[in-house]
């Protein structure tokens, strides 16, 4: 279980306040919807068929009990009491209100979680085997590499406006790796 350094925590707290200001600028009209949309997406907020949807990152699919309890609180306080776990190891809330999202991000930051780059034309949440560190046939746990890649890709100045989304997966289990001594890095 990775625990934020003070550097990580300062970054996430600053990012929440940046988004709070971006929401205010969208509501006061100084940002148009077309301009606001990429920044909304880069902070995990989609506008879906019926409502907004917030996609929260669960890096390499790993959570502790305090974080799962906080997600339960968030689903009750700002959503309809349920969350949706996705095939890319994230969780999605289906009914958040735009003005509540900065406070939701703040509640996530309290338990070392965020929604940064879970959407948008940037490098997305790094995924790994969901049995990492536990599977009987695993040669090496890829999650430290996934965390290093997460930090390297966070707010990377060159890669916030790519042609399209960019996804990275790291696998360590023997089943997927072609030769035993290598991890596999997949970029798509």
């Amino acid at each position: 279980m990775y625990h934020y350094s003070s550097f990580d925590q300062d970054f996430v707290n600053t990012r929440v306040e940046q988004f709070r200001a971006q929401v205010a600028r969208r509501l006061d009209g100084s940002l148009t919807e077309d301009e606001f949309k990429p920044f909304r997406l880069m902070n995990g907020l989609y506008l879906q068929l019926h409502a907004y949807m917030l996609r929260v990152a669960i890096p390499y699919g790993t959570l502790n009990s305090r974080q799962m309890t906080q997600l339960a609180m968030i689903s009750e306080r700002w959503d309809k009491g349920y969350g949706h776990f996705t095939t890319r190891q994230n969780i999605q809330f289906n009914w958040p209100k735009l003005e509540d999202v900065p406070n939701i991000l703040e509640a996530l930051a309290e338990v070392e979680m965020h929604a940064i780059q879970t959407s948008g034309n940037t490098i997305r949440n790094i995924t790994t085997d969901h049995f990492s560190g536990a599977a009987a046939d695993e040669i090496a746990d890829p999650r430290p590499i996934a965390e290093l890649l997460r930090q390297w890709s966070t707010d990377h100045p060159e890669f916030q406006f790519l042609p399209r989304k960019f996804k990275i997966a790291v696998t360590g289990s023997a089943a997927a790796a072609p030769s035993p001594a290598l991890m596999t890095l997949v970029c798509g």
Partner: peptide, 9 residues
């Protein structure tokens, strides 16, 4: 349309 603040239809 969708409401800007709530996102609702």
């Amino acid at each position: 349309a969708n409401n800007l603040r709530s996102g609702l239809v």
